[in-house]
Simulated assay, not measured.
Amino acid sequence: MKTRQKDRDNRPPEDPWNEIRPGLWMGGHVRAGEEPVVVGREFDLVLSLYQREGHGPPPGVEHHFAEMPDGPLNEAQIAEVERFAVLAAEAVRAGRSTLVRCHAGLNRSGLVVAQTLVGLGLTVPEAIALVRLRRSPWALHNELFVQYLESGLPTARLLVGLGP
């Protein structure tokens, strides 16, 4: 399955990950220059929307993976975004350090982190603005993902499930 768009004009951020709000981090598997980012034991929970061999986390760190494209999502994939956002919000409320990551840490992780922030009480515009402020101005540049957030993920999931 193709999970990354190849038409990227945006470089990955310099930082491997950034704290979006206390306990909630957003990052990628690579940073500027395609330098690999490997997760060790920095986090209590890692939620990955892209996976690359040798990029961690090590055994003993709670890790969930859902392969997801950086493009239109199907009903099951939107449900996984919702599930990951609930896991992240619960972990943050419990004081657990949580990393949400994808390839460059811009779109897929941004979708989950923004939805997590909504679950923690922010509005959608506030969540999107905070992700862009703390991670990168290029975060959530996938307008379809912004539309999913604006319509509400449950509504987006139902609409996608109706088909063409």
Rank of each mutant, 00 (worst) to 15 (best):
R11T: 06
E126R: 14
Y148H: 11
V61I: 14
Q147F: 05
W138H: 14
A104R: 10
R21S: 11
H29D: 05
A114P: 04
A156H: 08
H63Q: 02
V39M: 07
R157N: 06
R4G: 05
V113C: 09
E19D: 06
H29T: 07
A32L: 12
E35Y: 04
G60T: 07
R52M: 12
R21M: 10
E42V: 00
I128S: 05
E19F: 10
L24K: 10
E67Y: 11
H103G: 09
R21F: 01
E35T: 13
E34C: 03
G119I: 01
A32R: 14
V124S: 06
M26G: 03
E126P: 09
V81S: 06
T3N: 06
S97R: 15
V92C: 06
N18S: 15
L120R: 12
R96E: 03
G56E: 00
N107R: 02
A127W: 15
S151R: 15
K2F: 05
R108G: 02
M1Y: 07
G33K: 07
P72A: 14
L158Y: 06
R96K: 15
E150D: 14
G56I: 00
L140C: 12
P69G: 09
I20F: 02
R93Y: 07
D9F: 14
P13C: 04
E14K: 12
A156I: 02
N18M: 06
E80G: 01
H141L: 13
L122W: 09
P58A: 04
R83Q: 12
S151N: 09
T123K: 10
N18E: 12
V92D: 05
L87D: 00
R21E: 07
L140V: 10
D9Q: 09
E82I: 15
V81R: 04
P16V: 01
D7T: 11
